[in-house]
Design a binder for these strands. Structure first.
Length: 351
DNA sequence: AAACCGGGGAT
DNA sequence: ATCCCAGGTTT
């Protein structure tokens, strides 16, 4: 009686769902890969990455025996690179602990690195058809409006309450479609700013719409502002090779390659910090370009100097390597440095 | 609970 | 300029 909205939602999903690559399979491995890629990342962005990844690593075993550098290269540009490292580690856990058979129980899935409440619920419901809710930003928004949830959705307690509500209405025979339908509604109709309520299959059940409060919900606390950081980068060339640094695996952009750089207040500070960080004495020559990059929690304002290498014993603190310019495309370089890389590749030689 | 961790598209 | 996206982990 009071859960007819579930049926209405499922009928709408049958008619209006998008054709997405991961909807052509029930392979838990493929579903898993898609869910990790989709964390905080839009569907359209993920699609080409997903196709390439599954072509290269069709099974858990292919992924488990891969080199992490190749996994990161396939992840290049997607962001949140810890996802790729956890995916790789979890594949090795599945190979060793589960004989390469993806685990079937919720507790085992949840225990894998990189899998939290949302992803465990998504895999259990979508791949295995079991009634575990998968609560992402879409679902929180849909349920907050449907049930007039006026608490901050970023509070763990709110998620717990939404989970309890969903468990009570879960259609046991259509768990996979129900999970996906909730998210699809959030992505296509129940939009954050201007929801398309006239198109909504459950509008008559929506408590927010009844009170004309769609715009006010969900309630979400503000995020802290990103911090600005001045960063000086050195382009150091010897013949057709460029000196590149592989960032430490832990931390920001961990395991990816960068044009060696340091946070510095000015040019003199740059040379000093560079020697401390990399053990190399350089002379900044040509101020090549300025570029900035915005992370969710940090802003890099980068000054790039074509620099001369005077002397240096490489310290253990860094992981410097000479990379031929025509091989820059074979290592994983994050988006923050893509403009710089392009200027090298297009310009051929430096000015 | 808050901070850290990427990148891009929509408004 | 702001929001937020099929979030998880660490502090």
């Amino acid at each position: 009686m009071q859960i007819t909205w579930v049926t209405a939602l499922l009928n709408w999903f049958q008619l209006h769902q998008r054709e997405l690559p991961w909807r052509q399979t029930k392979d838990p491995y493929a579903i898993w890969v898609s869910e990790i890629m989709l964390q905080q990342t839009r569907v359209e962005t993920v699609v080409p990455y997903y196709r390439r990844f599954l072509e290269r690593f069709p099974t858990v075993e292919h992924l488990a025996k891969a080199q992490i550098d190749e996994v990161l290269k396939l992840w290049e540009g997607l962001g949140y690179y810890t996802r790729a490292k956890n995916l790789h580690r979890a594949a090795q856990v599945i190979q060793q602990e589960y004989q390469s058979v993806f685990p079937r129980s919720h507790s085992e899935v949840l225990a894998l690195p990189g899998i939290g409440d949302y992803t465990a619920g998504a895999i259990m419901s979508i791949a295995y058809g079991q009634p575990f809710p998968a609560i992402d930003g879409n679902v929180l928004r849909v349920i907050a409006r449907l049930q007039l949830v006026q608490k901050d959705i970023s509070l763990p307690q709110t998620k717990t309450e939404v989970a309890a509500f969903l468990k009570g209405v879960f259609p046991l025979e259509q768990a996979s479609d129900f999970t996906q339908a909730l998210m699809e509604l959030g992505a296509l109709v129940c939009l954050p700013m201007t929801p398309k309520c006239t198109l909504c299959p459950i509008q008559v059940h929506c408590q927010a719409k009844q009170r004309n409060m769609q715009q006010e919900l969900p309630i979400k606390s503000k995020k802290t502002l990103p911090k600005r950081e001045k960063r000086y980068l050195a382009i150091i060339q010897q013949g057709d090779k460029i000196l590149m640094n592989k960032r430490p695996m832990a931390g920001l952009l961990g395991g990816l390659w960068e044009f060696p750089g340091v946070e510095s207040k000015n040019k003199q500070d740059f040379v000093q910090n560079f020697k401390r960080q990399f053990g190399l004495t350089i002379i900044p020559k040509v101020h090549k370009l300025d570029t900035s990059h915005v992370f969710s929690h940090r802003i890099w304002e980068m000054k790039v100097y074509h620099s001369e290498l005077v002397s240096g014993e490489v310290t253990t603190a860094a992981d410097l390597h000479w990379i031929p310019i025509d091989q820059l495309n074979t290592i994983a370089i994050p988006s923050a440095f893509q403009k710089i890389k392009d200027s090298l590749l297009l310009g051929g030689k430096l000015c």
